[in-house]
Design a protein around this nucleic acid. Structure first.
Lengths: 250, 250
DNA sequence: CGCGAAGTTGAAACAGGTCAATGCTTGTGG
DNA sequence: CCACAAGCATTGACCTGTTTCAACTTCGCG
């Protein structure tokens, strides 16, 4: 096996600790090898910084490797709508790459690390490894499915329901990644983020959240989240967000 | 050029009157030829019928050829959220095909005609014609972008704004397809559809719509829509939905 | 210790929801 | 050709979830 050129200061894909988690579909040998070359480098972004902004057409595509980010749009009146959250393994910036224009921005919620790919080479990916091209489509379709669910939640649920949906959704996604420990998971959102994701005002978010905590449905503190009574949450929602199926990672 | 096998009772892709509209990116010769074979047939669905339902994993993928459809989810409390509308040229059922599970249903809004593709053969499309695979990704990313905009609208706009956004959005899409005639375009939605798409109640949709009509911003009647003062609508929205860029069609 | 960011709480105003009734079309069958 | 049913649109009255405004508190950190 030829040891392909590879920047010495970056993690080679085949030994990526994230990729090798059970949540991700294992890749065939040639695909991993391609990816190792496809990967142009790594990048760190500090919490609170935008890594992609509306209107731009980035020269890069990313896979989030550690930390949290979120996609959002700013409305003319100053309001912000968070479209969804990106967790490790999620592709970031596909719209900018494929549509050559961004209708939204992406901001780091925590300090994050990303794998960087060059837009120009995406075409080679489709040509040389159709299976990877298919995986990119899979990720795009899956992300749309997440936005679909959020739209339904924001459009049709009461404040309680929207909050319940959001926390359970984020819980399930972390569960899929094996990130629940001691009955808790990370939860780096401020109440402002929650409000902007659910389409509620900050004040009402606070009150409703407080009530859910008081009723023993949610535990919050120290940037972590606990869900002591998931069945009750599911009852409240009527139907639960589905667990993420085994998925590809680019 | 070999005249490939082709069901005699269906329109061959190369002479498809929809595909040859300026809104769509022309395909290279080999791709069109592949598509002619990829196309398994045509299908008609009557207004009001579901062509895909939640939970199923359809054996087929469609391109809407004429008429309107919409994607939606039903909530446990009986509410319905319309996720977006499909117009001619839109791919329908990609999530079911790629994710192998549908989180939403699709219903014909008018009588519709669809081109039918077999799910099994999608893989061949990626292998044999990477350019088409890329186009599928493009369509998925674009559709997500539409849902993004709806989510921002439903999450952050007032009732007036949501309605203004919806009608302008549908106007612009039809404009892209050359479907505006005599200052009007088709508008087959009932107020119930509008309510379900905007996350409003039927009654409030009616009142707000009525007010917009009264103010000369919207004209409705006979299943058609007129927008007499688009600049005023754009001012109301603060920013307008972007016109659709030239796009691929499968 | 002090400052800024985030969280909390009360009171008042309002957008939008719910309930309920009434018109208006349109298509169908007698 | 009329009568009726069914779906859709419209309007009024009332109610409540949510927003807004405006404090005040707590937390994290230099």
């Amino acid at each position: 096996m030829t040891q392909a050129r590879h920047r010495p200061d970056t993690v080679p894909c085949e030994s990526c600790s994230l990729r090798n988690k059970p949540a991700f579909r294992p890749l065939a040998e040639p695909e991993v090898e391609f990816l190792r070359n496809f990967k142009a480098g790594e990048m760190r972004v500090a919490a609170g910084s935008d890594l992609l902004v509306t209107g731009s057409s980035s020269a890069h595509l990313f896979t989030l490797w550690s930390g949290w980010a979120f996609r959002y749009v700013l409305l003319p009146d100053g309001g912000r709508q968070i479209l969804n959250f990106a967790l490790p393994g999620d592709l970031v910036g596909l719209q900018a790459t494929v549509l050559e224009q961004m209708e939204h921005a992406v901001q780091a919620l925590t300090d994050i690390t990303l794998c960087v790919f060059e837009r120009k080479r995406l075409w080679a990916l489709y040509q040389e490894h159709p299976a990877l091209g298919f995986d990119v489509t899979w990720l795009a379709a899956h992300e749309e499915s997440l936005v679909d669910q959020s739209l339904a939640s924001v459009g049709r649920r009461t404040a309680r329901g929207r909050l319940a949906f959001l926390v359970l959704h984020l819980w399930r996604r972390q569960e899929g990644l094996g990130l629940i420990s001691g009955g808790r998971c990370d939860f780096p959102l401020t109440q402002q983020h929650i409000a902007d994701a659910t389409g509620l005002s900050l004040v009402h978010t606070n009150r409703t959240l407080r009530r859910l905590v008081g009723q023993g449905l949610i535990e919050l503190g120290g940037g972590r989240l606990g869900l002591p009574d998931i069945p009750a949450l599911e009852r409240l929602l009527g139907d639960a967000p589905k667990p993420t199926p085994p998925r590809p990672m680019i």
